[in-house]
Design a protein around this nucleic acid. Sequence first.
DNA 1: CGAATCATTGAGGAATTTCAAGTGGTGTGG
DNA 2: CCACACCACTTGAAATTCCTCAATGATTCG
Lengths: 151, 151
Amino acid sequence: MTAFHLPGEIFGLELGQKHRFSAEAISASSILIPKRSAILALAGRDGDVARQLWTLTADALQRVQDHMLVLGCMNAKERVATFLLQMAKRTSGDNELELPMSRQDIADYLGLTIETVSRTITQLENDAAIRLPTSRRIVLRNRAALGRLNA
Amino acid sequence: MTAFHLPGEIFGLELGQKHRFSAEAISASSILIPKRSAILALAGRDGDVARQLWTLTADALQRVQDHMLVLGCMNAKERVATFLLQMAKRTSGDNELELPMSRQDIADYLGLTIETVSRTITQLENDAAIRLPTSRRIVLRNRAALGRLNA
DNA sequence: CGAATCATTGAGGAATTTCAAGTGGTGTGG
DNA sequence: CCACACCACTTGAAATTCCTCAATGATTCG
């Protein structure tokens, strides 16, 4: 698993002849899938569209590079803390968030096992860095502590 | 560390306002660094250039995604085997290759420690999958075995 | 209620890291 | 030419992290 996508986001802009990844919905979703040929044609005619498409791809590159650093350099606690901060930022920006995905999905995304994710979340709760009203709902109680793990 | 670049390759096409990564030469190199503004201007005028730039970025995205799978799913032996096959393919394509980078660089790239890289290479040698005439020179002796690790 | 799914917890084991020492090649100065 | 220092690499042993396997809760849905 390489990424989570939230409403309004664009993904799958891969440009190769074959698709290399698949997408799976974890909540009810409506998705707009333009034809590749239509996109290319439009980009060919309109320089501004071309520019925007390039930017979208560059943004995706940036996100993946960030995630690569997570997978390459961080331990379990740092990965989970980074993930929670990131999700908070991408959803409400608030201190409270509802995770739409299962522990298994989080584990796959972070390159950990489901048990390690669960244990780490429990540990963050014991550290008073977060609070879990329910298993999918998370309250960030100490952003500073989480941020330190994000280093 | 996120990538190695070989002669003839283009890198650093990041498009954001700030550079997020730095590059370090590990052998004598000459590097052409065009101005960002010049590139953007050219892309604006010439749709074909714009298309090529987009493709370059998309290719980079693809490489990084591949590497993310390495970091997210593979153990040490699989990572090193994948790395060696990849380097062989990118250099001569031959069965013999000279690594231009240190063990430390490889370790950073693969998300391992220098000791683990060293031990793993030794292990591959004991498995008769490779041979090391010198520490930087590697002969692929059993591509099939390495490939199985690449799964 | 019972079944099913998701999440948590525990115990043991495996893989990797850490710390420390040793090896081998290379260049430098006596 | 040899002794020495230096560097990259290798190896060993102990410690740590994370995974695996197994059992137990919690929640949802029929």
